[in-house]
C-alpha cells in the first residue's frame, strides 16, 4: 500500500504562443508532488497559478514540455491515445462547471455508459453498473432517461462524479468540483467525496482556490503560486501554521464567519502587509 500512486517530477508545461518565432509561455516551472493510494492531495492557488493546468497535464490535456508524470510506476506524460484508453480505467476527472461538463443533448444514462462502452463492457453489465452508480451518488434511478438540464447544479455534479467512478479508478483529478455550488450543496458533495474515498480507497488530486475546502478534504496540501509550488506538507500544518508568506497571506485573506474573529484576522493581515511593505522598502533602500 505504500507504493506511490502518482509522482510528478520537475513538470514543465508551456503553451506555444501564437505567430511564428514566438516561443512559448511557460505555465508550470518544474513542479513536483506525489500522491499515495487512498489519500487526497489538495492543490490550492489563485487564478493564474497554474493549478488547473497541473491537473490537465496529468490527464493528458495540456502539453508537457519537461519533467515526468509517473502513474503506478509508468511515465504517462506523453501517453498515446491507445495508452489513455487503458489509463482511463484508473485515472478520471470531475470538472468545476457541472453545466458544461455534461453534454446537454445526451441522457444521463448514455453519459454514464460512455466510459463503460469504450472499455467494451457489455450492455447488460453496463446498465447494471449505471444503476449502481446513480444509487452510489444518491440520484434516483429514473435519472437514466432524463437530460442534464432537468437537474440542479449539485445533482449534475453528482452525475459527473458518477461518471468518474464508472470504471472504479484509482485516482480522480477534481478540478474545483464544488466552487460553482451553493453552501449547503457544497457540504453534501464534499461529504460524498469523503464517503466514496472511505468505501473505495480512491485517491484525489483536489484542486481549489478555497483554503477552507482544501483543509477539510485533504491529507496533504500543496500551495501553487505563479507556476511554482511554494509550500507543501501535511494539511493541518500547511493550513494551520503556514510557513511561506504567500500561504500566510492566503490564510489571513479568507474571511472567518464570525465578526470579532474576522476583525482580529483583518488586523493581523494588515500588520503582515505593513511588515512586508516596510521590508520591501528597506530592501530597496539598502545598498
Amino acid at each position: 500500500m505504500t507504493e506511490t500512486l502518482l509522482e510528478v517530477d520537475d513538470l514543465v508545461v508551456a503553451y506555444p504562443r501564437k505567430g511564428l518565432r514566438a516561443g512559448a509561455t511557460e505555465i508550470l516551472h518544474r513542479v513536483s508532488l506525489a500522491i499515495e493510494p487512498g489519500r487526497t492531495m489538495g492543490l490550492v492557488g489563485e487564478s493564474g497559478s497554474g493549478k488547473t493546468t497541473l491537473g490537465r497535464a496529468i490527464l493528458g490535456l495540456a502539453p508537457v514540455t519537461g519533467g515526468s508524470i509517473r502513474f503506478q510506476g509508468r511515465d504517462i506524460a506523453h501517453a498515446s491515445r491507445r495508452e489513455r484508453i487503458a489509463l482511463a480505467r484508473d485515472l478520471q476527472v470531475v470538472f468545476q462547471d457541472p453545466y458544461t461538463s455534461l453534454n446537454p443533448s445526451m441522457e444521463i444514462g448514455r453519459i454514464l455508459a460512455e466510459p463503460l462502452e469504450n472499455q467494451r463492457i457489455g450492455a447488460a453489465e453496463s446498465r447494471a453498473r449505471v444503476r449502481e452508480l446513480l444509487d452510489r451518488v444518491g440520484l434516483p434511478s429514473d435519472a437514466i432517461s432524463r437530460q442534464p438540464r432537468e437537474f440542479s447544479g449539485g445533482q449534475r455534479q453528482r452525475v459527473a462524479i458518477a461518471r468518474a467512478l464508472a470504471l472504479r479508478p484509482k485516482l480522480i483529478v477534481c478540478d474545483e468540483p464544488v466552487s460553482a455550488l451553493d453552501l449547503t450543496t457544497q457540504a453534501r458533495v464534499l461529504d460524498l467525496f469523503l464517503e466514496i474515498q472511505q468505501d473505495t480507497g480512491v485517491s484525489y488530486l483536489f484542486i481549489s482556490h478555497d483554503l477552507d475546502v482544501i483543509r477539510h478534504i485533504s491529507h496533504d496540501v500543496a500551495v501553487l503560486l505563479h507556476g511554482d509550488i511554494v509550500e507543501q506538507g501535511p494539511s493541518l500544518q500547511v493550513t494551520g501554521q503556514p510557513q511561506h508568506p504567500y500561504t500566510q497571506r492566503l490564510l489571513l485573506a479568507s474571511p472567518l464567519p464570525e465578526p470579532d474573529a474576522q476583525a482580529q484576522r483583518r488586523a493581523e493581515r494588515r500588520r503582515l502587509r505593513e511588515e512586508e511593505r516596510i521590508e520591501g522598502a528597506e530592501r530597496r533602500t539598502a545598498p
Binding site: 445533482q155 449547503t184 457540504a187 461529504d191 464517503e195 477552507d212 477539510h216 478534504i217 485533504s218 464567519p257
Partner: peptide, 26 residues
C-alpha cells in the same frame, strides 16, 4: 442554522459535514 452548519471553518477535517449525504433533494 443549516446554512451555518454547512460552513467549513472550525469543522474537523475529513469528517462528514451533514448527517445525511444521500438523497435526491441536493
Amino acid at each position: 442554522r443549516a446554512l451555518l452548519g454547512s460552513m467549513l471553518v472550525g469543522r474537523e477535517p475529513l469528517t462528514p459535514l451533514t448527517t445525511t449525504t444521500k438523497g435526491p433533494t441536493s
